[in-house]
Design a binder for these strands. Structure first.
Length: 190
DNA sequence: CGAATGATCCGA
DNA sequence: CGGATCATTCGA
């Protein structure tokens, strides 16, 4: 099985919405202690730093969220509900907060069982063996990478937006992208 | 220092 | 719809 080449820095150093959208179809690879694991991304969500109240970066940087404000092309992994890890890909330029949450994927390599084991950000990390130990890793040089793959056609992309959460907001504040008809996607937004 | 809470998931 | 389960954050 051959995996594509790593995406370059320029892929990540773009507006978060574009990065989240373009992650669909790409191959997430983790060559860790448990072996080589790979999955095709089918769902991602954009978190815009300064204007999205739901973003961890909304109220400025903290120890935990520092990676979101740093260089693009790195990971931001956090722990929630005392149980799950979630992995983001940092976007925008260094100094501008933004990240795309990896929400769903389809098994390619080293992942046993059904596609449902990758349906949801918590499950995806569990299946790949990703924890906060892998936060702020560089996707260009670390054992975690995202690799090139044929783009998902526009008509196959489902986009969900929630707008105006904050009074006066002009930008869409929640963007969830998924591949229509694919397995491995989570339940819809609340 | 204590309390609240969460970018989730599962099962009833 | 509620419970699991705990790191992080914020206010006192």
């Amino acid at each position: 099985m051959r995996l594509g080449t790593r995406l370059r820095r320029s892929f990540y150093a773009r507006p978060t919405l574009e990065v989240a959208r373009d992650l669909l179809g790409k191959i997430l690879v983790y060559e860790g202690p448990a072996g080589l694991r790979a999955a095709r991304l089918v769902e991602a969500e954009a978190y815009l730093g300064g204007i999205d109240p739901a973003s961890h970066a909304f109220r400025g940087p903290t120890t935990r969220t520092a990676p979101m404000f740093g260089a693009p092309g790195r990971t931001y992994v956090y722990f929630v509900y005392g149980m799950y890890f979630c992995m983001n890909v940092v976007s925008e330029r260094a100094g501008t907060a933004g990240a795309a949450l990896l929400r769903g994927a389809e098994p390619i390599l080293g992942i046993d069982g059904d596609p449902q084991s990758l349906a949801g950000p918590g499950k995806l990390c569990r299946a790949l063996g990703i924890t906060t130990a892998q936060t702020n890793w560089d996707l260009l040089t670390s054992p975690i990478s995202i690799r090139a793959a044929p783009p998902v056609p526009e008509e196959a992309v489902l986009a969900t937006a929630r707008i105006g959460l904050r009074p006066g907001a002009t930008e869409h504040e929640l963007w969830r992208f998924s591949v229509r008809g694919s397995g491995g996607v989570s339940r819809g937004p609340r």
